[in-house]
Computed example of a mutant assay.
Amino acid sequence: MTEYHLDERLARDSDLVTKIGLCELRLMKDGRWPWLVLIPQRGGISEVFELTPLDQTMLTFETALVGEALKRATGATKINVAAIGNIVRQLHVHVIARNEGDPNWPGPVWGFGSAEIRDDEERASLAAKLVEALKS
Rank of each mutant, 00 (worst) to 15 (best):
T57L: 12
R9H: 12
R98M: 08
V93I: 14
L54E: 14
T74P: 03
H5V: 14
A73F: 04
D55T: 00
E62V: 13
L59I: 04
W105I: 04
P103Q: 03
W33C: 05
L25W: 00
T52A: 02
P103R: 04
V48K: 07
D13P: 02
L27C: 02
A69G: 07
I20E: 10
E24Q: 09
V37F: 09
H92G: 10
V81E: 09
G43N: 02
E132T: 11
A128Q: 07
G43F: 03
K78R: 08
V131L: 06
G21Y: 14
M1Y: 10
Q56S: 03
H94V: 12
L65C: 04
G85S: 09
R98L: 01
A115C: 02
P108N: 14
I39Q: 05
H5F: 15
V93H: 06
M28D: 02
K129S: 01
E50D: 10
I117A: 07
T77H: 15
L91E: 00
Q41C: 15
L51F: 01
G31W: 00
H5E: 14
Q90E: 12
I84T: 14
P34R: 03
R12Q: 15
T2R: 13
K29G: 09
R72M: 11
I96Q: 04
G113W: 11
L70N: 08
V37A: 03
G107D: 13
I117C: 12
K19R: 15
E116S: 06
K29C: 05
E24H: 08
A82F: 12
T77I: 13
F49R: 13
I20F: 08
R26D: 09
R32D: 00
H94W: 01
K19P: 08
V66I: 11
M58I: 12
G111F: 01
A76E: 00
M28V: 15
L10T: 09
T74N: 00
R9N: 13
L10H: 04
L38Q: 01
V66W: 00
E24K: 04
L22Y: 03
N104V: 01
S125K: 15
Q41Y: 12
R12D: 13
L22G: 07
L10C: 11
P34Q: 04
G111K: 04
H94A: 07
H94R: 12
L25G: 02
V17G: 11
P106H: 08
R72A: 12
F112N: 07
G113L: 07
D119A: 00
A124T: 14
L65H: 11
V81T: 11
Q90P: 06
T63P: 07
